[in-house]
Design a protein around this nucleic acid. Sequence first.
DNA 1: GAGTGGTCTAGACCACAAG
DNA 2: TTGTGGTCTAGACCACTCA
Lengths: 217, 217
Amino acid sequence: MTARHEEIADELRRAIDREEYTVGSRLPSETDLAAEYGVSRGTVRQAVAALTAEGLIGSRQGARRVVLASRRSQSFAELRSFAQWAKAMGREATGHVVSQEYRPATQEDAVRLQLPLGTPVLHVLRVRGLDGEPVLLERTVYADWISPAVEAIEPDCPSAELLGIRRTSPLLRVRRVTTTREGRPVEWSDDRYRSDAVSFSVHNSIGNNALARKTAD
Amino acid sequence: MTARHEEIADELRRAIDREEYTVGSRLPSETDLAAEYGVSRGTVRQAVAALTAEGLIGSRQGARRVVLASRRSQSFAELRSFAQWAKAMGREATGHVVSQEYRPATQEDAVRLQLPLGTPVLHVLRVRGLDGEPVLLERTVYADWISPAVEAIEPDCPSAELLGIRRTSPLLRVRRVTTTREGRPVEWSDDRYRSDAVSFSVHNSIGNNALARKTAD
DNA sequence: GAGTGGTCTAGACCACAAG
DNA sequence: TTGTGGTCTAGACCACTCA
């Protein structure tokens, strides 16, 4: 059922967690790992590529892979939910679910969440605020296999004043896709921020800068 | 010199740019692309994996890959430099280079930027602010092959009051790596934000959420 | 110079999509 | 049913690291 390379990636993550491989130390060679797990080198490379994308390990041609970080020390630079982030900032996060309903997955939903066409997906429209001030209009589409967990958590506040701004106000629009460690898409979202209220910044393995522009969406 | 799979990825990006493949249309099959470029299927998969990571195309098992976006329409959701972002927010961005010097690449520099040990890398320490208020202390290390471009742009303001806060003030710390489209690391940075001023994250193909936590660093 | 990661090939089988 | 992407194998050569 689960792909072998995902199992191996998980085992490596756990090995790093329990400090079998400590931060700064070298991972076994691809050949050794292949022998250890009884797979080909290609499969090992698929596994370590996942950890590399997560920033857990680094690599340079000719040298052993190096453990860069462990999931234990995730005190900072950890991507946070809106509420977690607000708390860290000493602000009070508010959230209201405006609407919530299942719809069959459109072509776009299916592609972004890697689901069959027509699979029921959960659409949630939320207004989120800081210290009572509405700041973010959030449209999220959840994959069917995760939506029960979402419904169980959602506090259902029937309605809310949508941001309380004119429809023509400029908004910062952000589309994003959230995935599990294994790269399985969990949700994708189309957010519109009040452009005078919030902000943010980059934090990406697959990032960009002014010198080498990238299209995020 | 350049890997074949990178060349193919570039050609595909350009093909999407000139709307040879329009948004919403299907890409040729891996087999067809392999024949067209005279390479094996594995090489084609390396190429399309890059575009997938960039969010340009999507894929589902059994169906043709779909073009999700073009680099033409990058008006929003584009990762911006600090100055670009500030301007979009209607704020005035300030920046001062506190120090700037070349040092031989340490083990960490070498791994994160995928450079040989001891290669000269450019260390830049900046203070950035919004509307005159210092907000971000930014330490950036640039790869040698990109540093000339950095030096040419940098305005050198000799010094600045470092954030104007006590050394013990809590700071939000963010480490990030910036890469080119091809995944070649350009810089990595260790930033410390004034925790009462601003900041945060999210916006990632390889993201996370509260349900499936990920270690960003 | 031996070891290692980066690249590439040419096959194979499977699960899923779509007609 | 046919085509497609996802996975996996078992080789190969090269560029680079490091002792």
